Every structure is written in structure tokens, then in C-alpha cells.
Simulated assay, not measured.
Amino acid sequence: MTNGEKLEQLELVEVSTKDGKATLQFIDRERGEVRDVYFNKNIFDPEKGTFIPSEEKAAKVEEWSQEYFGLAFDDLHQAIGVKKDVYAYDTFNSLWESEQLAKFDKSEVGMLFSTTVTSVVDDGIGIKIKFGHEGKTYQSNMNYSEYLESTREWFKNPQKERKQRQRFEEKFGISVDEKEKLVGQEIMVEVKLAFNRNVYTEIKPLPKKK
């Protein structure tokens, strides 16, 4: 777990719901602290600047309610007294472990370092390559999809996908279908800046095999 802490067997002491959002309050008696976990059926609408109902998110929340408490969302108050492990992070708490990806800032632009690949995933939106640096997990993205604000959905761009797959093969000497072979490989990473504001990481091409 990155930048987080597992708090074992905290008691659920209060459940409050309002407008599709449930606040589950757990108590850590040893530390004298409370930890709030949120189950929210709403998603944030950047145009309206507020949260709005989402059928897809509501379905996920119902699944979480059943998976972790064996109850419907509207019956979560019946779970008071139950003990659960809570994963505490800097800005939120969760009932499951969440990997927190670190990001470089402008002061680190130009830095070049060697590391190893820890995972490679093609999630239908892009190719995500994770690696570690100084105890933190970072991710380099080769996206081939576009996010439409009007529908709040990702849509694949076939031409861009072909280009990214070709770029992946040229850079690493293997196809995306063979991506697992990249895990454990040593890579060189450079921290770069785009449009004078967006910091990103670029993985250098692997040396070509003779």
C-alpha cells in the first residue's frame, strides 16, 4: 500500500445518509480518532460545479454495500457495531486498499533516473506502465482514448490506439500483447514538462537487442 495505513478492526459507530451519500463513521479507540468512509451514489459535474446522481455509480455503491456489509444501501444503518479494517490515506479513508500514484512537480523537471517496471496494464483507455522511485509508485500513460465532457465517458480513438501500440513496440521491442515481459525490466525515466504546466514522465526506449 502506497502512502497509506491499514487500521485493523475499527468499529462502525454511526451511519448517516443524505441525497444518495452515506457517511460511515468508524472509531479508533486506541488513538482516540474517528475515520469517515463515504459511499456516494453521485458524481461531480464540472459544468454545474456540484454532485449529480449517477445510475452507474449508484449500482457500484449498492455492490459495495452488499459486499462489505451484506446490506442494501438504504439499510446500512443496520451495520452499526460491525468491525472492519479501514485503509487510511492522506485525503480519504476506504474499506479497501487503494494504490496512490505519486506525481512529480515542476522542480523535478529534467530529472533522469533508472528504475524497474512493476506492472503494465492495457485498460481499454490506454497503456499504463507503473514503476517505483524512492519508495513511491509512479505511472507513465500511453493513452489512446478521449474523454467527452458532454457524456462523461471515455471513447477509444482507433487511429490513436494503433499509433500507441506501434510506439510501444518500437520503444520496448515487444507487442502490447506481450506486455508482461516488460515487468521487471530496467528502464530510464525522464521527468518532462508539457505546455509549461503539465509534468509527466517519459520512459526512454530500451536498447535494441543485437
Rank of each mutant, 00 (worst) to 15 (best):
T91M: 07
Y87V: 00
G49M: 07
S98E: 14
W96A: 15
D45W: 05
D75E: 13
A88W: 06
I80Q: 04
E99Q: 15
G49N: 06
I43E: 06
Y68P: 01
Q78P: 04
S54A: 07
E67K: 09
L76K: 06
N93K: 09
A102G: 14
F92R: 01
K57S: 04
K41N: 14
L112C: 11
S94M: 03
F44Y: 15
L101Y: 13
D90G: 07
S94F: 09
E67V: 04
A79P: 01
K60V: 07
E62Y: 07
S98D: 05
K84E: 03
D85I: 04
Y87A: 01
P53I: 11
A102H: 02
G110K: 12
L95W: 06
V109A: 12
F92W: 10
P53H: 10
K60T: 12
D74V: 15
L112K: 13
G110P: 06
E56I: 10
F44H: 07
I43G: 03
K48L: 13
V109Y: 01
F69K: 00
S98T: 10
E99V: 13
L71E: 10
K57W: 01
V61G: 01
S119V: 08
K41I: 01
I80P: 01
V82L: 11
E99C: 11
V117N: 14
E67M: 13
K106A: 12
N93C: 02
Y87R: 00
A72M: 08
K41A: 06
A58G: 00
N93W: 08
A58F: 00
W96P: 00
T118W: 07
S65C: 11
Q100F: 04
T50M: 13
D90V: 02
A79D: 09
Q78T: 01
F73S: 10
K57C: 09
S119W: 12
P46T: 07
G81T: 09
S54Q: 09
A79W: 03
Q66T: 10
A59Y: 07
F51K: 15
S98R: 14
N40V: 08
P46Q: 05
V82D: 08
D45S: 11
K103S: 15
D75M: 09
D85M: 02
S65P: 00
S94G: 05
L95V: 10
S107Y: 12
S119A: 15
A102D: 08
D45E: 06
D74Q: 14
K48V: 08
G81F: 09
T116K: 14
S119E: 12
S98F: 12
V117W: 11
E108C: 02
F73K: 07
Y89K: 07
F69C: 02
I43Y: 13
S107V: 12
A59K: 14
T116V: 15
I52G: 01
